[in-house]
């Protein structure tokens, strides 16, 4: 059985990159690579899961599966969290860098990405999907 790839988005509350990272992660998991990927909830990763279940599900998943982090900014919160609780990450996607590379798309706001923002999320999602394919070839 092929191991799924974990996708963990920064999900940051305070910045546009967080909203874009959430949207891109959803596109990958629901649309582009639904059978190859699984979304890891970053807050759940940080807080630990249900005590009854040992509180480590998301963290254990990232220990045993390749995991791609999607970072909204230079803080690299997802990477730090994965390295702290699980181990090295398989790849990191920088949303802020992709935003810089596509100045033609101007997302509306942190709350509402708007048409441009959604297009940007699609572009980020495609980058993530490429990484998933690369990881697949390496295995």
């Amino acid at each position: 059985m092929k191991k799924k790839v974990g996708i963990i988005a920064c999900s940051g509350e305070k910045l546009l990159g967080g909203t874009l990272s959430r949207a891109a992660a959803r596109i990958v998991v629901k649309k582009l690579k639904p059978h190859d990927t699984i979304v890891l909830c970053q807050p759940l990763f940080a807080a630990g899961g249900l005590e009854r279940h040992g509180g480590q599900q998301e963290r254990n998943f990232a220990k045993e599966h390749p995991t791609i982090t999607i970072e909204g900014c230079e803080e690299l919160c997802s990477k730090i969290a994965v390295e702290r609780y699980s181990g090295p990450v398989a790849a990191t996607i920088r949303v802020d860098e992709i935003m810089k590379a596509h100045p033609e798309f101007k997302p509306k706001s942190r709350e509402d990405l708007g048409k441009d923002g959604l297009k940007l999320a699609e572009i980020i999602a495609e980058e993530i999907a490429k990484k998933v394919d690369e990881l697949d070839k390496q295995r």
């Binding site: 920064c10 940051g12 509350e13 305070k14 967080g18 940080a46 919160c77 730090i80 969290a81 942190r110």
Partner: peptide, 26 residues
């Protein structure tokens, strides 16, 4: 949950928003 928080800081701008992700890492 996220949307409620964003609405709260919009209604009460002096309220601080804590990002759970950043709180965990930094």
């Amino acid at each position: 949950a996220r949307t409620v928080a964003l609405k709260l800081i919009e209604k009460e701008p002096e309220m601080n928003l804590i990002c759970p992700v950043l709180l965990n890492t930094s």
